[in-house]
Design a protein around this nucleic acid. Structure first.
Length: 510
RNA sequence: CGCGGGGUAGAGCAGUUGGCAGCUCGUCGGGCUCAUAACCCGGAGGUCAUUGGUUCGAAUCCAAUCCCCGCAACCA
């Protein structure tokens, strides 16, 4: 019996290019998807783009570009990340997809109407023309917009509202009981606090004059769906919610939504409310990640300290960036990026610990012409360490704690480095070749296990490692998870430099 | 008294059924020489924010205080 695993990222708003936060989310999600695939779960990994809204419409028209052409170009930049970050998603959904996405949104809307959860309301708000958005009275300074120093105008408009308040108590219960699991725990507390105060009904549509770029409300061409019913529905529209396709039936509900800490309330609140109302099954859990700061500061255009993930990949490579995110950023918390730390982590963990380990073992095997040998039983101590690592690794990965899983694997790398030093195969070669052979076998075997465990983190490097070992790429854990499951070492390659050292930046560069 | 998170070695962090304070990086000393000036071993470095309490014993439980950071309707 095969388990299924459906995992999603949030869809990216395409009015700007991808930043570190997107990259972090994609890498984290990709790693979990890869893990589940190797584990044998039938896995579906979805990502996509959010392409509607006033902001995008205005940016495009100001630049004299057709909105669709504008989002096409921007969405492409996000799709290009697949290669750059080595992402393994199965599908990419765009909210401007009129064939797949729009009908699903409209079906969702109709379901909400059927449940009597959509009602019409005259909305009155303070609108700042400069900001092009509604403002809350508490945001104003002396009745004026603090940015544009102009009094906002009072605008009245017709909106459809979604009766989210009706589901407030139910949602609270779902989160408290972990029926909808929110990890890490810290984020669960945060959202519980918000839900306990009671969720309010939310505006679900706006007049077409103010929101011309979006999905039409069924039965009322004068109204366009506001972001919620449009964007959140992507998680099911891509699977084929509209026609209740086989894919939809197989993969929904989602096993895991991976999102940033700023949108927890929408996923744990509005999205769940919508599904309850439409009588669609609920996602099982939500994994919340933090933001990426730069030298301890929030990245922002105004501070001019934005780090471009694409540039980092070009400079240091895909796996270097993937590894940094996974190794350095603890579950759910904000992570800091500094170039110094990035290079340090890479040089120390990847180059010196893992890369050098693989290199020295392979060179010992090659130099001493013991390329072709058979693996007997191996050392009990090594076997135990590997088994123990697998257990911890799986525990961490199964609870979506990738950061912890990485650190377990690196303890195994340390173990190997320590033992090669204790057993000194380079001198055993001269005194006791058989013993040397068996030591090297144990080490190769450990490296093989490492190549399996790191595949979800750094797939390219895992592939190179396998090539060195003379083994095919990792296909699944099941085939190779046991100690000693590879018995013949015929094609052990030469030691190559897996991770070339990165020169630390010159001081004057700063 | 809005809600939530946190204050542990130079930096970044672990550490709740209370029991001699740990990890990574950096730093200092030693070892090894198979390897990417890598790897291994050892040392130095902390009044665990403050104050009081419970206890044979508290980073860990309780009370109070100080400080930092998120969130409070549409920026991952």
């Amino acid at each position: 019996m095969k388990n299924k695993f459906y995992i999603t990222t949030a869809i990216a708003y395409v009015n700007a290019k991808a930043h570190m936060g997107h990259a972090l989310e994609y890498v984290l999600t990709d790693t979990l998807a890869r893990y589940h695939r190797l584990k044998g779960d039938e896995t579906f990994f979805l990502t996509g783009t959010d392409e509607h809204g006033v902001k995008i419409f205005n940016t495009a028209t100001k630049a004299n570009i057709d909105p669709q052409a504008f989002v096409d170009a921007n969405a492409k930049a996000f799709m290009d990340l697949k290669g750059l970050l080595d992402l393994s998603y199965d599908d990419f959904i765009r909210t401007t997809d009129r064939k797949r996405h729009w009908p699903a949104c409209q079906k969702m809307w109709k379901k909400l109407v059927e449940a009597d959860d959509i009602y019409e309301k005259e909305y009155e708000g303070l609108y700042c023309e400069g900001c092009e958005m509604f403002m809350q009275p508490r945001d104003l300074e002396n009745g004026q917009c603090p940015i544009h120093h102009k009094a906002p105008t009072v605008i009245r408009e017709k909106n459809y509202f979604f009766r989210l308040s009706k589901y407030s108590a139910k949602i609270l219960e779902l989160i408290e009981s972990d029926t909808l699991k929110i990890v890490p725990e810290q984020r669960k507390h945060e959202i519980l606090g918000i839900v306990r105060e009671g969720l309010n009904d939310v505006s679900f549509s706006r007049p077409r004059e103010v929101l011309p770029w979006g999905v039409e409300v069924p039965g009322d061409p004068s109204q366009v769906m506001y972001v919620w019913c449009d964007a959140l529905t992507n998680y099911i529209s891509a699977l084929g919610y509209t026609e209740e396709s086989a894919t939809f039936k197989k993969f929904w509900p989602a096993d895991l939504h991976v999102i940033g800490k700023d949108i927890v309330r929408f996923h744990a609140g509005i999205w769940i409310g919508m599904l309850l109302s439409a009588k669609v099954k609920l996602p099982k859990s939500i994994l919340v990640h933090g933001f990426v700061t730069h030298e301890g500061q929030k990245m922002s255009k105004s501070l001019g300290n934005v780090v471009d993930p694409v540039e980092l990949v070009n400079r240091f490579g895909t796996d270097a960036l993937r590894f940094y995110f996974l190794r350095e950023i603890p579950n759910g918390r904000d992570g800091d990026y500094t170039e110094k730390l990035f290079i340090e982590r890479y040089n120390s963990d990847l180059a010196h610990n893992l890369g050098n380990l693989a290199n020295r073992v392979h060179n010992l095997v090659n130099k001493n012409q013991i390329l072709d040998f058979e693996f007997k039983t191996g050392s009990e101590a090594y076997r135990q360490k590997v088994d123990e690592t697998w257990k911890l690794y799986e525990e961490s990965m199964d609870s979506h704690n990738v950061h912890e899983a990485v650190s377990h694997v690196w303890k195994l790398v340390d173990f190997a480095n320590k033992n090669i030093d204790l057993e000194k195969p380079w001198s055993l070669i001269k005194t006791d070749p058989d013993k040397a052979r068996s030591v090297l076998c144990n080490l190769l075997e450990v490296i093989r296990h490492i190549s399996l465990m790191v595949e979800p983190f750094i797939p390219q490097s895992s592939g190179k490692l396998r090539l060195m070992l003379g083994l095919p790429p990792v296909a699944s854990f099941a085939d190779e998870r046991e100690w000693g499951s590879v018995t013949q070492w015929h094609n052990v390659g030469k030691g190559v430099i897996l991770f070339p050292l990165i020169e630390p930046p010159k001081l004057e560069a700063k």
